[in-house]
């Protein structure tokens, strides 16, 4: 009995040590971002600020606000469009199988595992020639296309779990292909929409390679802006830390409130789950 209690104590101790380790970068970023310039000193990184100073947040916001706006204009439409197309695809692939549908699905899925470097040169040329280089609609299009495989995967796997009997019942009521989708499948799809919504928003918000390749300064999403901020030699690191937190905050807030669905997206992305 007492051995068991010791074991439990050790278990919680280890868990707390790891939790502290995972939180450590957040702690450092937060206290540094709240320090006035005079207290930003390499030797005193771990010291709490003597007074809370929000000037670095102001400076970071000034530098990042265009990027934050661009990222919102980018992530929200991309997420909505990809979710809608993903739902339709998932429905077709799970409830209306046709010869070769599984092979097709596999070919679609491979699209999410490629290194995007291997499509970057043609992508740049095509976006340029159709006038979408350096524009938010261009980035939306790119994120929608490369987001299709995971969206299709999540909806397909979700719809596989909906019993075919339900569709048969709907069919007796006189519903066709789209009728069944609207009256039976869509009302049950809310959890899948939440999962893909959170996952895709996070992915698009955090993405860097396409953003860095396909945009130039005034139209750059927040992660490129943050990278420019931290790469600049003249910017103090309290400002960099404030910028880092600011750029991470939207996805972090989504995670804090809807973490369960985020993890589902995470597991779904590994195909087997």
């Amino acid at each position: 009995m007492s051995l068991r209690r010791v074991n439990r104590a050790v278990l919680y101790l280890v868990l707390c040590v790891f939790a502290a380790g995972y939180l450590m970068p957040v702690y450092v970023a937060l206290i540094t971002s709240l320090k006035p310039n005079s207290e930003v000193d390499l030797a005193r990184m771990w010291q709490l600020p003597t007074r809370i100073d929000l000037s670095s947040w102001g400076q970071a916001f000034e530098r990042l606000s265009p990027g934050l706006a661009t990222s919102l204009e980018l992530a929200i439409p991309a997420t909505i469009i990809v979710a809608i197309i993903g739902a339709c695809n998932g429905y077709a692939l799970s409830k209306w199988r046709f010869p070769g549908s599984r092979t097709l699905f596999q070919w679609l899925l491979f699209g999410m595992f490629i290194p995007y470097q291997s499509v970057l040169i043609p992508l740049l040329k095509v976006m340029d020639s159709i006038g979408l280089y350096n524009s938010v609609p261009g980035l939306v299009l790119v994120h929608v296309i490369y987001g299709l495989p995971i969206a299709t995967l999540i909806f397909r796997n979700f719809y596989v779990g909906i019993p075919d009997d339900l569709l048969e019942a709907g069919r007796i009521d006189g519903n066709g292909y789209w009728g069944l989708f609207r009256s039976i499948i869509l009302p049950l799809s809310v959890p899948a929409f939440v999962v893909i919504g959170i996952w895709e928003f996070t992915q698009v918000w955090n993405e860097f390679l396409f953003a860095a390749t396909l945009t130039t300064p005034p139209h750059q999403p927040v992660m490129v802006a943050l990278q420019n901020l931290s790469g600049s030699q003249i910017v103090q690191w309290n400002v960099q830390m404030a910028g880092a937190i600011m750029a991470a905050l939207p996805t972090l807030i989504v995670y804090i409130f809807l973490g369960k669905y985020f993890v589902r997206g995470l597991l779904a992305g590994s195909v087997k789950g």
Partner: peptide
């Protein structure tokens, strides 16, 4: 505990890079 161990996944690699660049300076 579970949430604490997973939350870095919700953060961009760029953010991680900026912060760890200072931690491991």
């Amino acid at each position: 505990f579970r949430s604490l161990f997973i939350f870095p996944m919700a953060i961009a690699f760029i953010v991680t890079g900026v912060v760890w660049q200072w931690l491991l300076n």
